[in-house]
Amino acid sequence: MSADKNEELKKIMLVEDDADIRTVATMALEMVGGMQVHAFGSGEEAIAAVAGLAPQLIMLDVMMPGMNGPEVLVRIRERVETADIPVVFMTAKVQPEEVERLRTLGVLDVIAKPFDPMTLPDTIKGLWANRPRV
């Protein structure tokens, strides 16, 4: 992964099982944030594609049928070519202890649903800009 501090965030992988949210988030990031979004409906699909896609950042839903977000994260971290890609969780379970638990798994942050589509791109860019350097 590139460690260029000023590198602009352009390519995002979005993993979300809810098609509507996937659409809204994609539109927000692309139309408001000007980013290129590659959306996937399951963890399995995302894992299969992530190495080839090489996204700069992955937005990962926590609760998904099949592999859930944390399981997908583990699989991403297991592969050397994807291990250092920054990940942001999205979750509708916003209890503080749940959010705290997710943060300890090694992600940039946890974004609570529902999110504001107009501020979501800036939030993601802010997290990208302040990500720990490898």
Binding site: I21, V24, M27, M31, K113, P114, D116
Partner: peptide
Amino acid sequence: SHELRTPLTSIRGSLGLIAAGVT
């Protein structure tokens, strides 16, 4: 709460984009 948030995310997101004139 979780089940309400999921559709709310879509609704809020869609309305937010429409209201902001994105579409």
